[in-house]
């Protein structure tokens, strides 16, 4: 799939192993999309400190918070989503609350598996269905929903839940609603899964597994790969040639030895460290090119592994630049 094509999708899931920078890249993609004139909402499945780091402030849970004219962020919360869902089903909000506040129901809900994931996907579905305007001007409220998937070991398993429920629910209203969720997830025109990885073994393996799971287990369309934290080659070709030249000039090395402690060993050690890291990154990039969806958008490592809004904007520029054929 071309990178351009992902901007035509309605719902973009961003997945990958924990710690690879999913939230940062979800935000960067959302920012890149709003720069292109799309009305975007970033939906975060787990309430994470990362998004708040990026924004530099706390944001409320389960409330659409506008952070730019065409960009809103939203943190999902299953209990709130359940309340909203129940109110839609029972029609009378008071009755819904009564039901959910029933001591035993809430007790059961604390522990019961599956419904969290189900109402989470349900809320995403509901958001994508919402429209504004009337008649001819009626259009979706959000052109694009970027979903920052959870960082658990199997970050896509929450998407498997609708299929599980579709399987165990034999009939009833929820059964047909679950089918709507499945249709949304499996519609390649509307929905794709992008994967985020680092140029390291485990994140890459996990990315491969996640892509495989999205494709075969869930029948979802796979988009592109974002390779985050790439350590670039530390020296330009000219600098590299100059360094090789210096290394072979024994006279110059002796002079350096008189100026630097330990004969200037640290200079060459530090260079070797970073070159080795860059080489390793390249190996994993080559591997990724064989095993992960292409194109692969490379994003450079940024210390300290934490990015603020300016960092997000830089990454968004890189994504948009890659789009113009710069990748």
């Amino acid at each position: 799939m071309s990178l351009e094509a992902i901007f035509d999708k309605r719902i973009i899931f961003m997945t990958g192993k924990g710690g690879v920078g999913k939230t940062t890249l979800s935000m960067a993609l959302a920012w890149a999309a709003q720069e292109r004139g799309k009305n975007v909402i970033l939906m975060e499945v787990d309430n994470s400190p990362n998004l708040r780091y990026i924004l530099g402030k706390d944001i409320p849970v389960y409330k659409e918070t506008r952070i730019a004219p065409r960009l809103a962020v939203f943190t999902l919360e299953p209990f709130k989503a359940l309340e909203e869902y129940a109110a839609l089903q029972i029609k009378v909000a008071a009755a819904a609350r009564l039901f959910l506040n029933n001591r035993l129901v809430s007790y059961f809900m604390q522990a019961a598996p599956g419904w969290r994931e189900l109402v989470t996907v349900g809320k995403i579905w509901h958001t994508h269905q919402r429209t504004v305007g009337r008649g001819k001007n009626k259009h979706p409220e959000y052109d694009m929903i970027v979903v920052d998937a959870p960082a658990t070991g199997h970050g896509l398993s929450f998407l498997r839940v609708p299929a599980i429920f579709a399987d165990i629910l034999k009939f009833g209203r929820m059964q047909s609603q679950t089918k709507d969720l499945l249709d949304m997830l499996r519609d390649p025109e509307r929905t794709i899964v992008n994967v985020v990885s680092l140029p390291e073994e485990m994140p890459l393996n996990e990315a491969v597994t996640l892509v495989e799971m999205a494709k075969s287990t869930m029948g979802m369309q796979v988009g592109v790969t974002f390779m985050n934290g790439v350590h670039p080659e530390p020296f330009s070709p000219d600098e590299k040639a100059a360094c090789d030249n210096l290394r072979s000039d024994s006279c110059a090395l002796e002079t350096l030895g008189n100026i630097w402690p330990c004969g200037g060993k640290a200079l060459f050690d530090a260079a070797a460290d970073r070159q080795a890291r860059a080489r390793m990154c390249q190996e994993y990039l080559d591997l990724a090119a064989k095993r992960l969806p292409t194109p692969i958008v490379e994003l450079p490592y940024e210390y300290p592994g934490r990015v603020d809004m300016d960092g997000v904007k830089r990454l968004a520029t890189l994504i948009n630049h890659a789009l113009c054929g710069g990748a």
């Binding site: 530390p234 020296f235 330009s236 000219d238 600098e239 100059a242 360094c243 030249n245 210096l246 000039d249 110059a252 640290a266 200079l267 060459f268 530090a270 260079a271 970073r274």
Partner: peptide, 12 residues
């Protein structure tokens, strides 16, 4: 060797 020294020092 200025190019090499500058690059190595910046890296260190």
């Amino acid at each position: 060797h200025k190019t090499a020294i500058d690059a190595l020092c910046a890296n260190l």
